[in-house]
Design a protein around this nucleic acid. Structure first.
Lengths: 151, 151
DNA sequence: AAATTAGATTATAATTATTATAAATATAAA
DNA sequence: TTTATATTTATAATAATTATAATCTAATTT
């Protein structure tokens, strides 16, 4: 983890931003909860445990900054809040999500499944793809099994 | 257009909802601006031209209802507002979008480009896909040309 | 046709998420 | 150390959305 924070520190410095204690605390929360999809409020509450004096607005600003630097991705699953998701190191693209409409769980897919589709979009629509957002809505493995048992 | 409204009316009745004048006016706006991606506020202002007495909350409720019935899709391009987009008649899935990061334009792709990807998700992750959201972020044809000219 | 009922709307208030502002503080450079 | 700049805090403001209660409408029953 320290390694990763160091590298992000350098990324910030390269653009003459500072890694303040508040920013570092926020980053640590994101790293610890890498699998989750936390809202700004969620992040705020978790950061408060480490650094109780932090303000909500600072968390928002930090997340905004990290989004700009493409360290985190801001996503929206349609529930009214933005969520923030760490990019895998070196990832070109945003990863995909599987959102279960039964239990609300969110799974991540790291593989880039869209290379062929992007080529088509590029070719047929003349659109130069820089990034994508792909979310599938459906029923996760667990919920399918439960449904079967119940039936 | 009348045809389509009639069919939607039947869809509503089938679930014992009424097609009130307000709902109809809202639908007509959505049909007239089918290519656009209107926010609730946008829709409200347009509906007001036809039916000045309508309230914003009614528009919200109507859009919510139409979302539930899968007549419109609620999308979010990350600018803080939800947008509402009519489904093509009979469409199984939500269509895709190309959002230009230069000019902000939004193009629609009706073709379903994800059939292969969905099969993979189904097979490799055991996830039963019901719907999807796919948005590409990049540079549209027009903006690419402008960039070239300017250079 | 009048009365009843359930659904829908209006106007307004409340809530929630997010952003802006000004003063105070911390950090890095000179 | 002084200076300049970036950052944070605390608070207020804004913007989007939802809830509430009173009113209205339309369909149904009597």
């Amino acid at each position: 983890m320290e390694h990763r924070i160091d590298r992000i520190k350098k990324q910030l410095h390269a653009q003459s931003y500072k890694l303040t204690p508040q920013r570092e605390a926020t980053l640590r929360v994101l790293l610890e909860r890498e699998e989750d999809h936390l809202s700004a409020e969620d992040v705020y509450l978790l950061v408060k445990e480490k650094a109780p004096e932090i303000g909500l607005a600072t968390v928002y600003r930090t997340l905004e900054l990290l989004s700009e630097l493409k360290i985190v991705d801001k996503i929206n699953f349609g529930d009214g809040v933005s969520r923030y998701d760490l990019r895998k190191e070196g990832a070109e693209h945003f990863h995909h999500h599987l959102v279960c409409i039964e239990c609300g769980s969110v799974e991540e897919i790291i593989d880039d499944l869209l290379q062929d589709v992007e080529k088509i979009v590029q070719k047929d629509w003349g659109f130069q793809v820089k990034d994508h957002r792909l979310t599938f809505h459906g029923i996760c493995k667990q919920c399918q099994e439960i449904t079967v048992e119940v039936t």
